[in-house]
Design a binder for these strands. Structure first.
Length: 302
DNA sequence: ATCCAGGGTATTT
DNA sequence: AAATACCATGGA
């Protein structure tokens, strides 16, 4: 992590192949998004790391990203955590040029990589958030998923009012572990989904799964198995979390409907590709399936 | 009205 | 092991 601490603000040096514009495109994809705000290219994000609350004001300069603290200057360790959060949020640790090299083997990926050059995975450093967001998104359209997330956050998350605006924190698993299925059904969650969500919160409250415990797994397969042991977490959800939270580039939610639609479009098909066809193309993405998927998703909101 | 959506589990074959 | 049924809601 390449950054400088100026106390009142942080300066994070950008890696090669990083497009702030593309980050903004992703962050702007839904008007219903409630976990960050964007004003004239400046990103506001309320976070809580190691028991410290921080409002981050993130802006771009040609070779770095600046992080300011509109509330008050956090402690030194909190500033370090804030830098780490932003670094991880925009997946700055990845060697994107390697992906681009690999992408040359595939005509479709070659085109997307040229088009969205510098696009990095926009991640979810918080494991609970990643799991719940994935479960919310199961088998419903993205607009409704955002609606449910908004209701979920507004009911159970913490809120900061600052300069006439509200900034929300994703609910904690401690809080969600203590609510009832009925509380979520009132918000139009299905019974099944409510069970899954509260179940995940309880598993995490009991300390049975932490981000650290997953990071300590030896490989992708073991981490995936640990996630799939949770009720409500199937292969798709596990892969989604592995790519967006644990930065596994080989994670591949192959059953994803969005992936299928993107491929259908990029391949010029009248129908969705078969599993065989997908596997055939994906063979070219070895070790970078997660990024290939992310670029294909990007192609859907042109 | 109809189909589908960033799936998963439980049950049957 | 692999297919099928069921879940259940809103968006387009």
């Amino acid at each position: 992590m390449n950054w400088m601490d100026h106390e009142s603000y942080l300066e994070i040096k950008l890696p090669q192949a990083f497009s702030y514009e593309e980050c903004l495109v992703f962050l702007n994809r839904s008007d219903l998004e409630i976990l960050h705000q964007i004003v004239d290219g400046v990103i506001y994000k309320f976070i809580k790391v190691e028991k410290e609350f921080m409002l981050l004001k993130i802006s771009y300069t040609p070779h770095s990203i600046q992080v300011e603290f509109p509330l008050s200057t956090p402690s030194e360790s909190a500033r370090k955590s804030a830098a780490a959060y932003v670094w991880e949020w925009f997946d700055m640790g990845q060697d994107l040029p390697s992906f681009y090299e690999a992408a040359c083997r595939c005509d479709i990926m070659k085109r997307l990589v040229y088009k969205y050059n510098g696009l990095r995975m926009v991640c979810m450093p918080d494991l609970f958030e990643a799991l719940i967001w994935a479960i919310i998104g199961q088998q419903i359209n993205l607009t409704f998923a955002y609606t449910l997330k908004k209701r979920f956050v507004e009911h159970f998350g913490e809120c900061l009012a600052f300069e006439g605006r509200k900034f929300w924190l994703f609910p904690s698993y401690e809080r969600i572990a203590s609510i009832d299925i009925e509380d979520l059904k009132k918000l139009q969650f299905t019974n099944r989904k409510a069970e899954y969500i509260i179940g995940v919160a309880k598993v995490m409250s009991d300390g049975k799964i932490t981000k650290g415990s997953l990071q300590q797994k030896n490989d992708y397969q073991q981490a995936k198995q640990a996630l799939m042991a949770i009720r409500g977490v199937g292969a798709w959800t596990a892969d989604y979390v592995l790519m967006k939270c644990l930065h596994y580039n080989c994670a591949f939610p192959i059953a994803d409907v969005g992936l299928h639609n993107a491929l259908k479009q990029q391949m010029g098909l009248e129908r969705k590709p078969t599993l065989e066809e997908i596997n055939h193309i994906a063979a070219n993405w070895q070790d970078w399936q997660a990024y290939a998927t992310f670029y294909l998703w990007r192609s859907l909101y042109e």
